[in-house]
Simulated scan of single mutants.
Amino acid sequence: MEKKLPTIKEIAKRLNISISTVSRALHDHHSIGLRTKLAVKKLAAELNYEPNQTAIFFKQRKTFTIGVILPNLREEFFSSAINGIEKTALDNNYIVLTSQSHDDLEREKNIVESMKKHRVDGILASISKNTTRIDHFEQLKNYDIPVVFFDRVPDVPDVHSVSCNLYHSSVEAVDFLVKKGHKRIAYIQGPSTLNIKNERLNGYYDALAKNSIKADDALVVSTDLSTDGNTGALDKLLALKKRPTAVILFNDYVALDVIHHARQRKLAINKDISFVSYANIPFMHYLETPPVASVEQFPYEQGARATELLFKLLDPNAKQGLPPYENIVLKSELIIH
């Protein structure tokens, strides 16, 4: 027969005291004397008693679990963000349930539904490249499950978010390339559905104007972030009658494909063509010819700050001092390689 787990009721019966007294003794309540506390804890240890977490969760209306939804853990950017999230969650006695959307909207919706059913206390999310509406996140308000978006933030006003100022870094990137003598500067942007694409693009155009360089829309091409999309975007630029001498790339993963493809096209990296990218992933420094610069977006800090904000939303007292929707924006930094 399956052995029954010991309960508070059994401890109370053996010690001839009330169930409430046992509960208070196990929680070191001030109303319980030292002798009773010691007797209860001694018997609990002998019986290998463990608290019924389901009952505790039901009583406190918390599971002490937060859900995290992100595009892909294979990307070091998101792995670093998870480190910041887990450290902050652990400091607050929470555990983290992580799921990957793999940039698939339907998968993202299914994850949200699953996390809702598992009653996570809150959710941190970096949306997929195909997410244009956030109805599946909005419906969580009906279940008092707060959501904080980070890095890939939806282009809507009424959300809590943590992100990096990529407009600022786009301006810095163009200024840097102009000082290097470049006038034909192209930009390979990400999918049009990503709000962050607009911020980078606006910075790119404004920086060209600032440096008295006429914008050429032929120098702006898109990628769906796939290898074929990345290499195809470079091919479009190289097919121009007046090729660019420098290209700003959506992120370091695009840079890996583009640099490899440029080599196959017999171009000397940082001589025939130079690259600047975003993310500043550490392993890029080990490339023989990395981008001349990359934008640091502080993924660990984004993850940690987003988690801190989520815990404020979960704390009724702290929540009262927050604005209706808080948008934390970190300053990015152009790192010269």
Rank of each mutant, 00 (worst) to 15 (best):
T193W: 15
K197W: 06
K197L: 07
N195L: 06
L177D: 10
G190E: 02
A186E: 01
S170I: 04
Y187T: 11
E172S: 15
L201V: 11
E199P: 01
V174I: 15
E199K: 09
E172I: 06
Q189F: 03
V171T: 12
A186Y: 03
S170Q: 09
V171A: 10
P191K: 00
N198V: 03
A173G: 09
V178S: 00
N195I: 05
H182L: 07
A186R: 01
P191E: 01
L177P: 03
I196Y: 02
A186G: 08
L194M: 14
R184V: 07
I196E: 04
G190F: 05
V171R: 14
A173M: 14
Q189G: 02
I196R: 02
K197T: 12
N202E: 12
R200Y: 09
V174H: 12
I185E: 00
Y187A: 03
L201H: 10
D175V: 13
A173I: 14
Y187F: 05
G203K: 07
G181A: 05
R200K: 14
F176A: 10
I196C: 08
K180N: 13
E172H: 07
I188G: 01
V178M: 00
V178C: 00
N198E: 11
A173Y: 14
P191G: 06
G181K: 03
D175T: 13
L177F: 14
K180T: 11
K183T: 15
V178L: 00
K180W: 01
H182T: 10
P191S: 03
A186M: 01
G181E: 04
G203H: 04
P191H: 03
G203I: 02
K179D: 08
G190T: 06
K183A: 02
N202R: 13
S192N: 11
L194N: 06
V174E: 12
V174T: 12
K179Y: 02
L194W: 07
F176L: 13
S170Y: 04
S170E: 08
V178F: 05
G181D: 04
V178G: 01
L177Y: 13
N202H: 12
D175R: 12
E172T: 11
A173H: 13
E172D: 15
V174F: 13
G190K: 05
V171K: 15
H182I: 11
D175H: 10
R184D: 04
A173L: 12
K197N: 07
L201R: 03
G181Q: 04
E199L: 11
R200A: 03
L194H: 04
I196W: 02
Y187Q: 09
N202P: 01
